[in-house]
Amino acid sequence: MAHLFVVESADFLFLQRQTGLTWGNLSSHLSKLENAGYVAIEKEFIDKKPHTTLHLTDKGRTAFQEYRQSMKQVFDDLSV
């Protein structure tokens, strides 16, 4: 989600290169995130080849920001 958070949208290949995950692993993660409503997946054909574009939904962005806030709180509490 962090990789999608910093961009507007990206395709499957770009995410795979950035995360270093395998096709199956990344696909599985994204399907779960899509089911949760955090990621929107658009499929289309470019030059007769399937192409998948992904972007975070508003709900996903909010959830990610909340997660970051709570993680920051945890780290702050630990450092006190």
Binding site: V6, V7, A10, L13, F14
Partner: peptide, 9 residues
């Protein structure tokens, strides 16, 4: 080779 990305505005 490395995919397509659209960066933030």
């Amino acid at each position: 080779r490395i995919g397509f990305v659209k960066f933030a505005p």
